[in-house]
Design a protein around this nucleic acid. Sequence first.
DNA 1: ATAATTTTATGATTTAAATCACATTTTTTT
DNA 2: AAAAAAATGTGATTTAAATCATAAAATTAT
Lengths: 225, 225
Amino acid sequence: MENKCILCAHKSAAVCKLTENGQKVLSKNSLTVPFRKGDFIIKQGTYSTNVAYLKSGLAKIQIVGPYYTQVVKIVKPGNYLGLPTTIGDKINQYSVVAIDESEVCFIDTTTFMNLLNDSPEFSRQIIIELCKSELVSYQNCVRRTQKQIRGKVADILLEFSENIYNSDSFNVHINQEEMGNLVDSSRESISRVLNEFVKERVIEMSGKKIVILNKEHLKLMSSRG
Amino acid sequence: MENKCILCAHKSAAVCKLTENGQKVLSKNSLTVPFRKGDFIIKQGTYSTNVAYLKSGLAKIQIVGPYYTQVVKIVKPGNYLGLPTTIGDKINQYSVVAIDESEVCFIDTTTFMNLLNDSPEFSRQIIIELCKSELVSYQNCVRRTQKQIRGKVADILLEFSENIYNSDSFNVHINQEEMGNLVDSSRESISRVLNEFVKERVIEMSGKKIVILNKEHLKLMSSRG
DNA sequence: ATAATTTTATGATTTAAATCACATTTTTTT
DNA sequence: AAAAAAATGTGATTTAAATCATAAAATTAT
């Protein structure tokens, strides 16, 4: 489906900086593709030919490691999925997988590079986003290595509530196996900690639904590691 | 000391894309400062007012975590030290510490932003570098979580030999405590593994000097995790 | 509705590496 | 050169979490 970027409700901050004409060029050289849960949006090892932008849904960035495939990051709507792997290397250095029904906008790489060339404001915004993203990577690195399981699980619950679902009550769209992946721990450990939290009345859980009862306590556990 | 960027032997790939005039502007708005081992080049929590570029020496990026300060990355000459923390946030989100005698070029942030604005080629090069850097972050993340100690130590030895000192024989400028920091393990574990490698005739070690005897084996251990 | 499959729960065991404790060596300071 | 401080080596112990094992519950397919 061809885009009408000017009318797009999910426009990126960078695209907002483009002129009307720039947005028209973009419209002509991009298209929106729907993905279902589990679908590969970008596949590690293949040639990267498009810049991808997550319009709606939820996705994860994962890399094949020596022992298993590791989730590096969750991406929310309004972010580019593949800039590092598209601009930094000809071959995709990671995969991006939809973890929920998603809409992805694919932009022709040459068009994208031309826009960077023609609009300093667009470039600047992209640079800002890359910088922020790198900071997040660094913080993730610390979280992954220093926090214990309870802190990690507290972290991901806060992430869900504050950044992803924007509510203290939400349905997690992934199973415990995958939650383990997200924070580098085993399925069993996630199950145990989640049930500890229920017993301690920090959260309520029924099926896929989680309600955060004591956010302060979660934050405490998150910062303590 | 004021710079003469045009004559600089350590010029960044991005600066090479600037016109002669652009480089003159840069010269007028930047200066080179020497640092000794252990000095803070950028300090987490302070305002970020300059873009820093590592001309020579070696530095590490570190973040205060819940339990200890963690090294996120080693930076080699020819790289910007503080782009994410300067452009991504007003306050420095990490520290940069010299791990060897270093020369750092500080560039006024406004000047840097103007250069980005005026030169698409400069911008593009910065974007490419940020993208590559993010890829490295992702790969570090996998290494940190999936590899075992022997793999991690093999990794860092290869890093020293292939990317930092460019030789199979080199003097490590950091102690084992710090090596542990770099790969998230304890001083004692580093000591043990290093001595195992000596016994297995993979490396030779005398004081700070390390000679790699069997690089193939190191690579094997690195990829196996 | 029933069977098959997936997901979750939970106890027991194992494991890799951290920590502790202390000795020895090396480097730095006086 | 002697003393002090820092860095390294190595065994014993502890620890957090993975793995293993099995059951129960929930979801999906037939």
